[in-house]
Amino acid sequence: MVSDSITGPNPTMSTVPRESSRAYTQTPEQAERSVEKLQAQFPDLFFEVRRFRDEVTVYVPREHLVPVCQFLKSDEETRYNFLSDLTGNDWPDRDPRFEVIYQLYSLKHFGYLRLKVRVPEDNCVCPSVTGVWRTANWHERETFDMFGIHFEGHPDLRRILLPEEWDGHPLRQTEEIGWEEPEFTVRKVQRDLAKG
């Protein structure tokens, strides 16, 4: 159940019901048609679909990701030929802990569709879609760098933003946000004084 109002733990305010915003002109019809087409193409698979504010999310079983992407890209009606974005997310409390998120876009009908793949922690591997869209290369490297999700079939899976010898994957929710103490002279003096 999706509520259009803000659900804040705030007893002093009443929740004002609001119509969904008119500022966003994206229409979900094309995405809905694509989901139907996808389900017809893969009748044995179950695709969980979620809708929120005109955006459609399809959960794809991990092992069927590449054929599904290939179909959505090449089918004349769906034609999601542009991979806009690829990123990950980490939910430490859930059972498949990680998810990989694909934002598909079409330069034919200019609509979006979001695919999601759940990836468990103990088998942290996701099939690579670099064979479908070349742009996935750097996105997958970044997701590997930040979340430690391995992309099977990626031509060159290395860290991209962090140095090679970096320890850990900083965008995992379990990683604390850290800092370095700047080495000012006054600190050294204080340390030396404390040592005596």
Binding site: V2, S3, D4, I6, T7, G8, P9, N10, Y24, F52, R53, E55, T57, S84, D85, I101, Q103, Y105, Y112, R114
Partner: peptide, 12 residues
Amino acid sequence: FHPPKNQEVYVA
């Protein structure tokens, strides 16, 4: 403020 729980958006 608190947006709706477990929801996501992608805006370009």
